[in-house]
């Protein structure tokens, strides 16, 4: 009974804060609404006895959402929410797509028949997960590790200030694109492909 009430409360919190992410005017608030949604899902996982996964989810998202907030402030106009703001395109299409995917997955959940087999009591799921990670699923675990390493290297390569054809923030264009400009002339290449001026307030 108490478990059910807690579950519904945190479910409502997860969905409500998820919805608020795209309705908040302040970027910092949007990021932390998302963090709240993740925290609510983490607590539901803890209620489902997946204690380790739920706590790790909260731990991970705490750091990630803070970085997200910094990025939002760095890259968006009106970061502090001093003015009301919506930056959307094809809103109605997006709403239809969202509703359709919700209905499809919810119908799957409501009408499909799944086997009922709860975890037996008295078994520590964290221990089982650890044995699985370093036992039968070692290959999956290692693949995830290598994938993360590759993502780290790729992220540094992509975001590095020095691009392949000169400084990245000068506007780099690959040689075969530079028809009029002499090869290697970064300034001319930048003129060939002028960087658009940032103009706040041009939304559809």
């Amino acid at each position: 009974m108490i478990l059910n009430v807690t579950f519904w409360a945190f479910s409502a919190l997860a969905v409500f804060s998820g919805w608020r992410v795209f309705r908040a005017d302040s970027m910092v608030r949007a990021a932390y609404w998302l963090l709240l949604s993740f925290a609510a899902v983490g607590i539901i996982l803890v209620l489902l006895k997946a204690e380790f996964l739920g706590l790790i989810l909260i731990l991970m998202m705490g750091g990630e959402m803070t970085i997200m907030a910094v990025f939002m402030v760095a890259f968006m106009m009106n970061p502090a929410g001093l003015n009301p703001m919506t930056m959307v395109h094809r809103n109605s299409v997006a709403i239809v797509a969202g509703v359709v995917s919700f209905l499809a997955i919810a119908a799957l959940g409501l009408f499909a028949r799944f086997p009922v087999a709860r975890a037996p009591a008295g078994v520590d799921p964290t221990r089982k997960l650890g044995v699985e990670l370093l036992g039968n699923s070692m290959l999956v675990f290692q693949t995830a590790g290598v994938t993360l390493l590759a993502a780290m290297i790729a992220a540094i390569a992509i975001s590095s200030a020095r691009g392949r054809y000169g400084d990245a923030d000068q506007g780099s264009v690959e040689p075969d694109q530079m028809v009029t400009a002499p090869a290697g002339d970064v300034a001319a290449a930048a003129a060939h492909d002028p960087a658009p001026v940032i103009s706040p307030g041009v939304h559809q």
């Binding site: 992410v21 795209f22 395109h89 919700f102």
Partner: peptide
Amino acid sequence: IVVAAALFGIGVYGALSQQSFV
């Protein structure tokens, strides 16, 4: 599953409708 579907649906809406990369 219904709660998960709601979260996924809101995510689909956000990913399709928002202009900002972040």
